[in-house]
Simulated scan of single mutants.
Amino acid sequence: MTSPTSPTSPASPTGPSSRAVAPVLPQDFTGRTVVVTGAGSGIGRATALAFAARGAGVVVADLDAKAAAETAAFIEANGGAAVTVVGDLGEQDVVDRVVATALDSFHGGTLDVLVNNAGIMDSMSAVADVTDTEWERLLRINLTAPFLLTRAALPHMLDAGRGAIVFTASEAGLRGSAAGAAYTAAKHGIVGLTKSLAVTYRDRGIRANAVAPGGTLTNIRVDLDPAADGPRALGAYMGNVGQPAAADTQADAIVFLASDAARNINGVVLPVDGGWSAV
């Protein structure tokens, strides 16, 4: 009985096959430009640091100027390259600045990876309790802003014949019991947008995928009334969340989906939730 061939070593020339086994491709982004939104903190900051550590030039986009500057400083202190763009990504002029900065700042006018991560949480409100203000704000930040930035980035990716887009969806994009009505609707929209992009542009070198985080240690705020219909009904399901993950756990999954190691993965919504979605 022959021993199994090591996955990182060539097959023995005396065995049944002399074909070498291809090594796993490294997650190397040297020479590539990556845009990360919501990069001032949490999953976005961890993701920006992870790409920079792998050689990417990173555009740190965030609403909070101080937080964005801190992320860029962390990157530069570790020998990486970063620039910041500050503003509300629900506004077209800010979106245009992000894309222009990506094209002008680093490696020969390319925008190789777009990570649509920025988002806010709702107040866990049930449908009957969602105000117009909450609904419109959640949809604008969590769904419209990623759409606008993707639409602006796509022509440049299409011209280059390649590009990877990764969205931060949510466990709330897979079920109806993980957040309030507005957040749930927005994240289901992100799932649909991801799949639509994957189908439409799969033959033109563009890949679109998403992570669906479960409980994660970030500074995202949730202001709620525990006695309201939404939190009262949803509370029964929150015992299944499990142990919250560190932000860099989500960043690792995002980097993988954007990397050449995932070159044949397209249209996937990957739960990164410790098994919550399996319950």
Rank of each mutant, 00 (worst) to 15 (best):
G173M: 05
S170G: 08
V58Q: 02
A258F: 04
V127G: 14
A233W: 04
A68L: 07
S123Y: 13
A212E: 00
A68Q: 04
S9V: 15
T150Q: 01
D159P: 07
H188R: 09
T168Q: 10
N78F: 13
D252L: 11
S6Y: 10
S9T: 15
P244A: 03
G274Q: 06
V83C: 09
G163D: 01
Y183C: 05
L224Y: 13
V35C: 05
A182L: 05
D28H: 06
L111I: 10
T133A: 15
L217P: 03
P155W: 10
H156M: 07
A145I: 10
A178F: 06
A118W: 06
I206C: 03
D223G: 12
D88T: 04
L114R: 07
G119H: 03
A186W: 00
V59Q: 08
V24I: 15
T110H: 13
G119T: 01
G275E: 03
L49E: 14
T110V: 14
V115C: 13
V34T: 11
P226Q: 08
A169P: 00
V166F: 04
A262I: 05
V113T: 11
A100N: 14
A164H: 01
L143C: 10
V222H: 05
L138C: 13
N78G: 15
S125G: 10
N209H: 07
A258Y: 02
A258H: 04
R140H: 01
T2A: 15
N116D: 07
A46K: 07
D129N: 13
I165F: 04
T101K: 09
A164G: 08
T14Y: 15
R97L: 15
G239M: 05
A50Q: 02
L111T: 08
V130T: 10
A210M: 01
A185I: 02
S277F: 00
L154M: 04
H107S: 11
A53S: 15
Q92I: 06
W276L: 09
V166L: 02
G15M: 05
T184F: 00
A126K: 06
G90R: 11
A210W: 03
R263K: 15
P226S: 05
P231N: 07
A178V: 06
V83H: 06
L158K: 05
A236P: 09
T249E: 14
L193I: 04
G215P: 07
P155T: 09
L63F: 10
G79W: 12
A185D: 11
P16V: 12
A185P: 03
A246D: 13
V83I: 09
V98C: 11
K66Y: 12
N266P: 03
